[in-house]
Amino acid sequence: MEITPPTPKVPPENWEEFPDLREWAKYHQERPSGDKVSNAFEGLAEAIHQMPGGWIMVTSTEKIFNWARKSSIWPLTFGLACCAIEMMATFASRFDVERFGMVTWASPRHSDLMIVSGTVTIKMAPMLKRIYDQMPDPKWVISMGSCANSGGPFRHGYHVVKGVDRVVAVDVYVPGCPPTPESLMFGILKLQEQVAEFQKTGQRQVPALVSD
């Protein structure tokens, strides 16, 4: 006996039972023909509808969004100390993180990622928090180097925040003093893996204050 896979009928015969699809059809009938946006929508809808079960593909859009998010992480140019030199080397032509879709941007309003590269002093921490708050959600933080991770060699100084995770929520910690560009790139790739699984938008949990 020969088994043939079922052929999807596109669009399905009972599509008018679905109010959303009726809305969609009405919307496209009302739009003038030859409209660029309308044509693009129709092309996209046609492409998706040709996939098996594509006419009801809803949940997978999250995957598309996450792919888009992870492929264009724009880091904020925010250098604090000597780690920033390694960060600049990572952004420059030799290591070239632009191939990961990263464009360094000089405004927190358009950035997705803050790389805390250096020692955070108690005087600098409110400014860092303020810049972090100016970034739109969803946003990520890489803590780069020993100082940002834990205070590093200056941990016992009177003026140093003992880890930037006491100020903002950190996603990836990159060890090293300073980390090499390869280390930072590894951290960025780890962050991309994390962003690919990103589910929710919105600000994450505020870090709990840890007393010594």
Binding site: I122, A125, H156, Y158, V161, V167, L209, D212
Partner: peptide, 11 residues
Amino acid sequence: YAVDTAHEPYR
């Protein structure tokens, strides 16, 4: 001056 003198909220 104690090194671990508390300085809220960041330490």
